[in-house]
Simulated assay, not measured.
Amino acid sequence: MADGRVRQLIDTVAWVRIEEGRILCARPRGKGVFYIPGGKREGADTDLQTLLREIEEELTVALLPETAAHVGTYEAVHGPTDGALVRMSCYTADYRGTLAASSEIEEVAWFSYADRALVPPVDQLLFDDLVHAGLLR
């Protein structure tokens, strides 16, 4: 990244679930960092198709597609040396089922704004918007 060019675009979709001023985050198995739940788009999948698939895979719940609403799209360089740009399209949605970590997820947690440093740069942009909107404590 020394030359300032982005070497790769990582296109993701994320589920913004806020309860009592805290946002749901998940830590994948084998990783040391928490993320907003979601994942990478596959092929020509729409945001909604990606969101429904990834959340069911990660958290064992079914999102209700008719309740999905776009919150915002954020972009940030993933790390200081790899040059990957992460684009994260964020949606809220109601769900059916019981939230639980799947085999892909090591741990789920409810974060407040004080936990902002524990998530990647693109997630931090979402945290900033949510706290300014009064949705995140």
Results as ranks from 00 to 15, higher is better:
residue 39 G to C: 05
residue 96 R to C: 00
residue 64 L to V: 13
residue 33 V to Q: 12
residue 82 D to Q: 05
residue 88 M to V: 08
residue 51 L to K: 05
residue 127 F to A: 05
residue 75 E to V: 02
residue 41 R to Y: 08
residue 74 Y to F: 14
residue 71 V to C: 14
residue 131 V to N: 09
residue 73 T to A: 15
residue 82 D to R: 06
residue 54 E to Q: 14
residue 65 P to R: 05
residue 114 A to D: 15
residue 73 T to G: 07
residue 48 L to G: 04
residue 49 Q to T: 00
residue 45 D to G: 01
residue 104 E to N: 12
residue 4 G to I: 00
residue 108 V to I: 15
residue 56 E to W: 11
residue 135 L to C: 09
residue 132 H to S: 14
residue 113 Y to W: 08
residue 97 G to C: 03
residue 34 F to M: 07
residue 115 D to Y: 01
residue 60 T to M: 11
residue 40 K to A: 11
residue 127 F to E: 09
residue 69 A to M: 12
residue 66 E to P: 02
residue 119 V to I: 11
residue 46 T to V: 04
residue 71 V to R: 15
residue 29 R to L: 12
residue 72 G to P: 10
residue 30 G to S: 12
residue 57 E to P: 01
residue 91 Y to E: 11
residue 63 L to A: 00
residue 63 L to R: 10
residue 40 K to Y: 05
residue 67 T to V: 02
residue 33 V to K: 15
residue 110 W to D: 07
residue 36 I to P: 10
residue 93 A to W: 04
residue 41 R to M: 06
residue 27 R to I: 00
residue 127 F to L: 07
residue 96 R to G: 00
residue 115 D to K: 09
residue 104 E to Q: 14
residue 87 R to W: 09
residue 5 R to P: 03
residue 127 F to C: 09
residue 1 M to Q: 09
residue 75 E to N: 08
residue 133 A to K: 06
residue 80 P to L: 01
residue 84 A to H: 08
residue 130 L to Q: 13
residue 46 T to E: 09
residue 131 V to L: 09
residue 74 Y to D: 10
residue 110 W to Y: 13
residue 120 P to I: 06
residue 63 L to S: 01
residue 26 A to E: 09
residue 104 E to G: 11
residue 26 A to D: 08
residue 101 A to Q: 01
residue 49 Q to W: 04
residue 77 V to M: 06
residue 125 L to H: 11
residue 53 R to F: 11
residue 109 A to D: 14
residue 131 V to Y: 04
residue 120 P to W: 01
residue 21 G to F: 05
residue 6 V to P: 04
